[in-house]
Design a protein around this nucleic acid. Structure first.
Lengths: 216, 216
DNA sequence: TAATTTATTGACTAATGGGTCAATCTATCC
DNA sequence: GGATAGATTGACCCATTAGTCAATAAATTA
């Protein structure tokens, strides 16, 4: 495996800075100058590592998404039953480190650009597909039919999208607990009130908390 | 009632043009020049009616929302039972005239700006509150408890948001029928499979279609 | 018809922001 | 130590765009 060169590290720094700036200032407000200031470097230095603003932001989004994915994978590896995998997905989507208004705002900013930017479109598609197939796979393994699993996955992913949107808009001041409760209420209606599911939820919730505490 | 002056009509023209440009080109791409071109007028003329770009776009969004609202009110006036009101709300949110990728993109563009623009924040809040209170009111009148109605309204409004987002992103190529089906599947699980509800759905769906045919 | 208001526009300004470039500065390698 | 490669940056350049302004055209009114 190739080790990280100095240049790679620098690129990462600028990319993370870019995502933070994007989250706070939106797409219009994300200027090369601001990103540079945010790292203490100069605008020209940023452009030394990224040929243009486009690729910088693209890299920033991919990197941010990779972070999310790593967290999700870590959780999934600890899941041993289908329902635990299901709740692993949910917990990852509402992890305290990522489920924050600024981060949500960053993603919404990307969404607004999707129709004008094929690269963003691709990123968005990848994210969506992964979520969907993970959900379907987990639900199917609980014993549902393909169709049931599809319906369930659709419903849950739509809810997640809706909640992230609302989080970014800071409507009704919803926090992580509220978000999880909203979803759980629907999930209960959708899939019935199984004791096995409750246990899986409790386990993955605890694991997620342990992981974030560990990371901090 | 004050009649519309020539100036008012002109303002409306520019505002509708602005929303159309916004829907196609996003917030960044919505320049005064483009809006002017889209109406055949000059940039300076636009600024003659709107002191700045800010108020132009704000007016455009309010106007677009007012159009939606009128459609919703027309449907609601034809509803006579709580479930009919409920489906009136749904139908209005998926009306063929408004539930289009470009329009959805326009709204997402606004959402992305909400954190930087108190006016947009206000518009967004108004829209959300109206939807929520309409849903709660209809559901409560079907005999649910306050809490049940709240939960139901939350679930449905989150789904609607998620679907609009997905529509704007043109993910999975979902069309109106798919969107309605997604929602209906969840609604069936949430509220049970009542014959009365089915009838209400059929009626409001037919009325909505009649209204849009009439408008065309 | 003359006067006054209103509409429209081309030309201009100022600021912003992406991107280039040549000059330095630093570190590594022979 | 000297050379070479990469890092960093200030100074530019150019395109874009919001907003101004004064001049002209059109319409309304007295």
């Amino acid at each position: 495996m190739g080790r990280k060169s100095i240049a790679d590290i620098r690129r990462e720094e600028f990319a993370t800075a870019a995502f933070e700036v994007l989250s706070v200032h939106g797409m219009q407000g994300t200027t090369l100058q601001r990103v540079a200031d945010h790292t203490g470097a100069s605008k020209a230095s940023v452009l030394h590592y990224f040929s243009n603003k486009q690729t910088l932001i693209e890299t920033a989004l991919r990197q941010a998404n990779a972070t999310l994915r790593k967290e999700a994978v870590a959780l999934m590896n600890l899941a041993s039953t289908p329902w635990e995998r299901f709740y692993g997905i949910l917990e990852a989507n509402f992890s305290p480190t990522t489920f924050r208004p600024e981060v949500a705002h960053g993603w919404i900013s990307m969404c607004a650009e999707v129709p004008h930017n094929p690269q963003f479109q691709r990123i968005q598609t990848v994210i969506y597909r992964r979520l969907h197939s993970n959900l379907v796979s987990a639900l199917k393994d609980t014993g549902m039919t393909e169709a049931e699993a599809e319906h369930g996955a659709n419903a849950v992913s739509l809810l997640i999208d809706g909640i992230w949107l609302r989080c970014g808009l800071q409507i009704g001041g919803l926090n992580r607990e509220d978000a999880a409760a909203h979803i759980e209420a629907v999930v209960n209606k959708l899939f019935g009130d199984l004791a096995e599911r409750q246990a899986a939820k409790a386990k993955m919730s605890a694991l997620a908390q342990a992981l974030t505490l560990n990371a901090a």
